[in-house]
Design a protein around this nucleic acid. Structure first.
Length: 210
DNA sequence: CGGAAGATTTCT
DNA sequence: GAAATCTTCCGA
C-alpha cells in the first residue's frame, strides 16, 4: 500500500482561483488505472495499492484562468457551451479540453457555482528519480503521459463519487518558493497576455518553459 | 454550411 | 519556423 497524502477537500477549490493555482504547487497528482471509490478511507487520508497507480507526480506549474474578465479564458464574457459548461459548476471537478485538435489539457475547476474559473495544470515533477521529467513537462504531454483524456471530463476530484484522478497534499509537503510569470500561448488575448497568472516552483526542473 | 482559430508539441 | 489535426464558434 502507498499513501499519497491527504485528499484536497471541496473547500480547497471553492476559493480565489489564483490562490488555488499557487497552493496546488507542491501537491501530488495521482492517476489510477481505473476508477475507485475513496469513501472507505478514514478522514481524508488516502491509501492505495501500488499496482493501481498509473502515474503520479508533484504539481510544479499551474496557470489561473479567470472567467468573465479574462480574455484568455474559454469562459470569457460568459461564453458557455458544451466544452466550458463544467466551469460553471462548483470547484473540484476536472475540466479537460482538446487544443489544436491534438492535445488534451487538464484543468481543475475553482470557485463556487456560477463562477466559471479554472486552473490549468501544466507540469508535474516525478518523484521516483527515474521517470524522465520531460514526460510531464507541458500540459499536452502531461495528459498523454498520465493517461488523462476527455473521457475524464467532469470527474470529481473530491471523491464524492468514483474517480481515477486524485490530488493530495503529501505528508512531506512544504510551502514551495513560487515564481509568477506571464501565461504561455495566450499572446492573442491583448492585455490578458500580460497578466502574471502563471505560477511555478522556482527551482523545479520540470517547469515547461522559463 | 464553410472558414477560422486555438491555454501545444515535434520535427526541420 | 511550420506542420499536424479537430472541435467549436461565427458569419453568410
Amino acid at each position: 500500500m502507498i499513501a499519497p497524502g491527504k485528499l484536497l477537500e471541496r473547500e480547497f477549490y471553492l476559493r480565489d482561483t489564483l490562490t488555488v493555482a499557487k497552493e496546488l504547487l507542491g501537491c501530488r497528482l495521482t492517476v489510477l488505472n481505473s476508477k475507485v471509490s475513496l469513501k472507505s478511507f478514514s478522514g481524508n487520508e488516502v491509501c492505495l495499492n501500488f499496482q493501481d497507480i498509473y502515474a503520479c507526480g508533484i504539481i510544479c506549474e499551474t496557470e489561473g484562468y479567470l472567467g468573465l474578465s479574462d480574455k484568455a479564458c474559454h469562459s470569457y464574457k460568459a461564453n458557455k457551451n458544451g466544452r466550458t459548461n463544467i466551469m460553471y459548476g462548483k470547484g473540484g471537478f476536472a475540466y479537460i479540453y482538446l487544443v489544436y485538435g491534438l492535445h488534451n489539457c487538464f484543468n481543475v475547476v475553482t470557485q463556487g457555482e456560477g463562477i466559471p474559473e479554472a486552473v490549468l495544470i501544466r507540469a508535474l515533477q516525478p518523484e521516483d528519480g527515474q521517470t524522465d521529467i520531460r514526460k510531464f513537462s507541458g500540459p499536452g504531454k502531461l495528459c498523454k503521459s498520465a493517461g488523462i483524456t476527455r473521457a475524464d471530463y467532469g470527474a470529481d476530484l473530491c471523491a464524492e463519487s468514483e474517480t481515477k484522478i486524485i490530488i493530495t497534499k503529501p505528508e512531506n509537503y512544504f510551502s514551495p518558493q513560487i515564481t509568477a510569470a506571464k501565461r504561455i500561448g495566450v499572446d492573442y488575448s491583448g492585455e490578458a497576455a500580460d497578466y502574471l497568472y502563471r505560477f511555478y516552483i522556482t527551482d523545479s526542473k520540470s517547469v515547461s518553459k522559463k
